[in-house]
Amino acid sequence: MQPPFSVSLILLPGFSLFALGAVRSLFAAANEVGGELLYQVEQYAADGTQVITQCGVVLSAHPIDQLQRADLLMLVADERVEPSIANTTGNFLKQYLSSSHHASESILGGCGTGTQILAEHGLLDGYRAAIHWQILADAVKRYPSIVFTPGLFEIDRNRISAGAGAAVLDLLLHWLEQRHGNTFAAEVAASLGLERLRGSDERQPVPASAQPALGSARLKEALELMAANLAEPLQAEDIAQLVGVSRRQLERLFRQHLDTFPSRYYLELRLKHARRQLKQTTQSILQVGLACGFTSGPHFSTTYRNYFGYTPREERARHSMPQVMTKNSEEDIQ
């Protein structure tokens, strides 16, 4: 009997618990359909023995330097990763691929923003890849040696990648189909309650709020101006003049396509950017507020609380003091 195919999941801070659960459930289902232990899954942390999920839960994991051999190494991430941890992970993978006797047989993958770490360290050069839709445009510019696609996933030789959310399921189901055949993959999908397998040519679903242009070139230009001027917000009159419409026409465009006013949209854009910075960086609360166009700490705090229901300090505390799972819960997930 052949040893099980080893799957090593490298979990990056802020990863989606949904993505981890989906991957582990898929391989558990594959073992069930196959009637034997076809896949052995282990999880690793790039920094220490614990990793924090997107929802603030702490999971235990093996230190990444204990990883000896893996048939499939996959980075799981859903938020931008601190440069130090990203570099630790990328450098480890480069060293592994250059020193391991089995490196040529290993498959390297990423889902969500995990693909960006592979790209940053040259591990996807010459390959096709899928990446989280939120950073797709930036990735195309930053990594010209990689062919990024807007699809749900990509399987290109010994590199596999998926975009956001459930796309990792579609990726791995198609990968299982290549290894075991259509019937096997269909049975795994059915056991997970999936009616069909989505193809790699299907685009990642993007929220309506992230598709703001909706056929209006002037609206698109106005939104690009807002996104480029978060620290020093423009006045509505200035935006209207720059895109070649009156302020009333600009307000009409926003109401028609986004069901809001320019000032409201701009404020939400700045607040949501501030929220990401509070969760993903170590900048002080005042620095975050100023970088998002708020004139003082109290102004930032009051506006943030009015919109989200809690202060920037409380937001940061929610992510710096995560809930710790019980020992039994950790063992269930591992």
Rank of each mutant, 00 (worst) to 15 (best):
P207V: 06
Y127E: 05
V288A: 00
Y143L: 10
N328G: 09
I285P: 06
L214P: 00
L267S: 03
P207G: 07
G112N: 05
Q43F: 00
E251R: 15
E42S: 15
L20I: 01
I160P: 01
L192I: 12
N182K: 13
Y304L: 06
P312I: 07
S104W: 07
P233F: 10
N91F: 00
R196D: 10
T88S: 08
L171Q: 01
F294P: 07
N31H: 05
N328K: 08
W133D: 02
L73V: 14
E221M: 07
G151Q: 02
V147N: 08
H319F: 15
R247W: 05
L9S: 08
L93T: 02
G34I: 08
V23Y: 01
L223M: 05
I333N: 04
I107L: 12
A217E: 11
L11Y: 06
H101Y: 07
T303I: 04
T260H: 03
Q235K: 14
S84R: 11
E221A: 13
L38D: 04
A185I: 12
L67W: 03
E105N: 06
R24D: 11
N31C: 11
A19T: 12
Y304T: 04
L17N: 07
E36C: 09
A274L: 05
A77L: 02
D71Y: 06
L37W: 04
E232R: 13
G199P: 01
E195M: 10
S145A: 13
